[in-house]
Amino acid sequence: MSVASRTGQPAASGFMSQGRQFVGLAILLAFLSVFFLYPLVEILVLSVIDAEGSLSLQPLYKLLTNAGIQSILLQTAVTSVTVAFTCLVIAYPAAACLARLEGWKATLGNIIILFPFLTSSLVRTFVFIVLLGRNGMLNQFLVSIGVPGAPWKLLFNQTGVIIGMTYVLLPYMLLSLVGSMKRVDARLIDAARSLGAGRVTIFFTVYLPLTAPGVAAGLVITTILAFGYFVTPALMGGPAQVMIAQLVEQQVVIMFNLSQAAGLSIIMLVIVGVAYAVAARWLGIARLMRAG
């Protein structure tokens, strides 16, 4: 591997001439501007136009002060963060083990993690509905071994949503963690051990900080993804678990109210943007990007 990749510095130019590179970049920027940035601007514009067609912050204000929408936003934020941390706790030990594997075991592990990506998340969610129901496989098992409180209510409530979303997002967290765990230099661990550190100390002072970029990137990715989810909460949640993306879909597909949808989108963008800014500040942008 070249020195370039190990230190994260960009490799020297030589792929193409300056002119060519410029053209390539220009094409990309043009593409993004026309097909992505411009519609986002349209959304922004739509969200600040009131009923008469003049520019005003009124519609956004109305949305933000609507009690129903406020609680839905809160619900979405709380659920997203909960799901992200649940993913982290579940994935961390597994990823550490996975990062150590080599050869066919590593390949097998990677395949199994990637496999869920290949099925529609929609289908995976409704399989859960069958498995987690009152008479579903899990509850039948719990009842048969006499677990107290069984059958548990695992569907149509917050628990169901968290289980469903954790399941769908776990692979993202695993991949992010494994990526940074693989880069941990084993010699650093050896050095710490030879200096007399115990296992717990090594974990907290060496391993964990070294994997922090992966943890951070994983948390950020899963939180943001969870924030925009609508399929899982729609199928596995109750009416109190409605998340903001469901509202946006409602507005577009059922009510044809694009300005409301736009307003909600802008609010979402702002929240997500702030979250990113905070994360980037706290962890450093470069580490965030590199860890991905």
């Binding site: 097909f35 992505f36 411009y38 519609p39 986002l40 349209e42 959304i43 739509l46 943001i224 993804l225 924030f227 925009g228 609508f230 993306a245 946006v248 879909e249 577009v252 694009l258 949808a261 736009a262 989108s265 979402m268 963008l269 997500v272």
Partner: peptide
């Protein structure tokens, strides 16, 4: 969020 990209594409 994906839903915003979807809305953007719809408007586009």
């Amino acid at each position: 969020p994906a839903v915003v990209v979807a809305l953007a594409t719809y408007l586009l």
